[in-house]
Simulated scan of single mutants.
Amino acid sequence: MEVFADFLAGIDNLSHRERMEEVLTWVGDTFLALVPKIGWNQPMFTDHDTYIIGFSIAKQHLAVAPERAGMIRFKTDIDNAGYDQTNLLLRIRWEKPVDYSLLKKMIEFNIADKADCATFWRK
């Protein structure tokens, strides 16, 4: 995924860079119709020019942002996975595994829920 090359190269911690690359590659390989892009200096995926999911990094975690609707819909699943969460994102600590089945459900929900969305963000 060349679109993310500069972003990934800017991650100094090699294990964090590898984890982020693994997640981004998984999303791209699993959801071939999604468009990878950099927006607001963060990697994200869109569908028909509407936001589906985005990612960011911090010292202690990888953050996943499925928009508020996704956070509400999957609050219990996020809790059960042992991830911290805010109103807009969940945090996967670097030492914890990525729950790809949860990530898949979140992305599938956003794709279906935003199928007729004509804006980048939900209104």
Rank of each mutant, 00 (worst) to 15 (best):
G39H: 10
K105E: 11
A9Q: 12
N87L: 11
I11Y: 08
D47S: 14
L62A: 09
V23H: 07
I92L: 02
E67K: 07
T119L: 05
D84P: 05
A9T: 06
R91A: 08
E108L: 11
R122G: 11
E21W: 02
Q60F: 01
A5Y: 08
Y100Q: 10
T50C: 15
G28M: 04
A118G: 13
N41G: 06
V23I: 12
V64G: 00
K59M: 00
A9P: 06
A5M: 10
A118Y: 02
L88W: 00
K104V: 01
L88G: 15
Y51K: 03
F7R: 06
A65V: 10
F31A: 02
D113A: 15
E95M: 09
I11N: 07
R122V: 11
L24M: 09
D113E: 14
A81G: 06
T30M: 00
F120N: 11
V98F: 01
W121I: 00
E18S: 12
E67C: 02
Y100A: 05
K104N: 12
A58S: 12
D84K: 09
D113V: 00
E2K: 08
E95G: 06
Y51W: 02
D79W: 02
A5F: 06
K114V: 08
F109K: 10
Y83L: 06
Y100K: 08
E67S: 12
I11A: 05
I111H: 08
P97M: 01
Q85M: 13
E22L: 05
R91K: 13
A5C: 07
Q42H: 06
K37H: 09
D6E: 14
D84V: 00
D116W: 00
T30L: 00
T86R: 07
K104C: 10
N110D: 09
V98L: 03
A81N: 05
D6S: 14
L32H: 04
D49R: 13
H61N: 11
I92A: 04
R93V: 06
K105R: 15
I111L: 14
F120W: 14
L24N: 03
K104R: 15
W40I: 03
P97A: 09
P66H: 03
P66T: 02
Y100V: 05
K105C: 07
G28H: 11
E108A: 11
A63M: 04
T30Q: 06
W40Y: 15
A115M: 09
T86L: 07
D6C: 00
G70Y: 04
A33M: 10
K104T: 13
R73H: 13
I72R: 10
G70D: 04
A112K: 13
V3Y: 07
V23R: 06
I52T: 11
D6T: 14
T86M: 09
D79E: 15
I78M: 10
E22P: 04
A5E: 12
V35D: 13
G82H: 06
R17S: 04
T30E: 08
E22M: 05
M71Y: 07
